[in-house]
Design a protein around this nucleic acid. Structure first.
Lengths: 236, 236
DNA sequence: TGTACATCAGTGAACGCGCGTTCACTGATGTAC
DNA sequence: TGTACATCAGTGAACGCGCGTTCACTGATGTAC
C-alpha cells in the first residue's frame, strides 16, 4: 500500500490535525480485523479507533460500513489470488506440457484450500460480499499478475483442454464443478467438522480432492485417451 | 412437534399465566427465524416475542442464546436429513443393484443441494454450530429414519463399495471428498456467485457435479471394471 | 375430601454493550490574487 | 512574495437501535398431609 507524501500519521500517536493517509489506514485496519475475526469484525468504529481517528471521520472516505467491508473483501480476494499464484510459481516446469498443465491446475485447488486454512478470516470475508459473476474482470480483486482467483481457475482449465486432458465438450461449466469441490473443502476445513484436523491431513485430503476433480471432469472416455485434444499438440 | 395436554397457549393471544408449551414454542419460533434469516436472526428476544412471552422467560428452558441456537441447528440438520430421504424415497428401485446404489448416492447429493436452495436460512443455520465429527450418532440431528445427513452419505458410499463401483481401497475418506463437492456447490449457489442462477441451472450443475464425484472417486482402474467388488454379487 | 404450602414458570424493570449514523463545528492546508 | 480565503479532513457530542442478561418478584399449579 502506498503512502502519500506529507504529514503521514497512522495509529494513535498522531500530532497533526490531518491524518494524511486515512483511507489506506482504514483499509489496512479493516483488513486486519477481517483477518482476525471475519467480516463481522470489520466495523467502522474499530477501524477508526485503530487509525487513531474519530468514528465519523470514516465517512470522508467510505460511504458507509458496507463500502468499507466491500473494499476489504476486494483485498481479501486479491490475497487469495496471490496465494494461488505463489503455489503456481513454486512449480518447476518439466518438458511435459501435460504434466505442467495438470500441476498448474492442481496448484489452484491446493492454493485455494491452503489460503482458507491459513487465513480463515480473510477467506470468509472474501466471500461475504457476493460478486455477481465470479469476479470476472474486477480490477481490484486481482493478484500481482492481474488475475482474480476465478480467472486463475478458468485459465488452468483452459490449459487442460488445450493439452487434451479435458475434452472441449466437457469444458463449459467445468469451473463451477471444480470450484464447488475446492470451496466446499475449504469451508468444511474452516468452520465445519474438518476444522480440527491438522494441516497435514487437510493437505492430503485436498490433494486427493483435486485428483478426484481432474479425473471426474472428463466425462467422455475420449479425454482419457491420448491425442484427442481439439488443438494440435506442439510438443509431447 | 408434540403439544402437552392442559392449557396450551402459543402466540400473542394468551390468557393463562402459564404458557404451557413454551420450550417447543421457542424452538419453533427460532426455527422460523432461522428459516427466514439464518443463524444471526435467531435471537432470544424475537423468539420470546413470537411466543408471546417476556424475554427472560426463555432462561427457564435454555441456558442462553447459544443453547437455543444449538437446538435450532439440530432441527435444521434433521430437516436436511429428511430432504435427502425424500429424494431417496422418490426413487423407484430397478432390478439392477448397481443402478440402485448409484441412484441412492446421487440422491444424497441432489437432495443436499436442493435443501440448500429451498431453505438457505436453515442450511446456513445447520452449519453454524459446528459439530465435531460429522454428526455421527447425534440423536437430535436425525431425520425420520434415524440417520444424520452424514450417515446417509456414508451409507450411500458403502453401498457403492458393496456393489463394486468404488474399490474398497478408495473408500476411506471418500465421504469428505463427496461432501466437499456438494457442500461447496450449495454455498456457492446460496451466497456465492451462483446464487442468481435459476433452479434449473443449479439442478443441472448439481447433477453433473455428482457424476463428477462418482467418476472421480474411483482412483484405481479396477473399480471401473465389472465384478471387482469385495463382496460377492447377489444378482446382476 | 379439603386445605397449606412448596415449586417453579413467567413478569417487569433495568443494566450495559457496541454498533452505525447524523449534526453542527473547527482548524490546517494550499491556492488565487 | 505576501496575504485572504475557500476547501474539506477530522472533531465532539449525541441519537436510537436491538441485543443478551440479571434482579427481585408474583401467581398458578399440583402434591403432601
Amino acid at each position: 500500500m502506498s503512502t502519500t507524501g506529507g504529514a503521514v500519521n497512522q495509529d494513535r500517536g498522531r500530532t497533526t490535525y490531518r491524518h494524511g493517509d486515512l483511507r489506506p489506514s482504514l483499509l489496512r485496519a479493516g483488513y486486519e480485523l477481517a483477518q482476525a475475526g471475519g467480516p463481522a469484525a470489520v466495523t467502522l468504529r474499530e477501524s477508526t479507533r485503530r487509525a487513531g481517528v474519530t468514528p465519523n471521520a470514516a465517512y470522508r472516505h467510505f460511504a458507509d460500513r458496507q463500502a468499507l467491508l466491500a473494499s476489504v473483501c476486494d483485498a481479501a480476494q486479491a490475497a487469495l489470488a496471490n496465494t494461488i499464484e505463489d503455489e503456481q510459481a513454486a512449480l518447476e516446469p518439466s518438458r511435459d506440457r501435460r504434466a505442467d498443465a495438470v500441476a498448474l491446475f492442481r496448484a489452484v485447488g491446493t492454493g485455494y484450500v491452503r489460503f482458507a486454512r491459513q487465513e480463515p478470516g480473510l477467506f470468509r470475508t472474501a466471500f461475504s460480499v457476493p460478486d455477481n459473476l465470479g469476479g470476472r474482470g474486477d480490477p481490484v480483486r486481482v493478484g500481482r499478475n492481474g488475475k482474480t482467483p476465478f480467472q486463475l481457475l478458468t485459465g488452468a482449465l483452459d490449459q487442460l483442454v488445450e493439452v487434451g486432458l479435458i475434452s472441449p465438450a466437457d469444458r463449459p461449466g467445468a469451473e463451477f464443478l471444480a470450484w464447488s469441490a475446492v470451496h466446499g473443502l475449504s469451508t468444511l476445513a474452516i468452520d465445519g467438522p474438518l476444522r480440527q484436523l491438522d494441516d497435514e491431513h487437510v493437505r492430503a485430503i485436498s490433494t486427493r480432492l483435486v485428483e478426484m476433480v481432474e479425473l471426474g471432469l472428463s466425462r467422455s472416455d475420449a479425454s482419457l485417451q491420448p491425442g484427442t485434444a481439439a488443438t494440435p499438440e506442439h510438443e509431447v
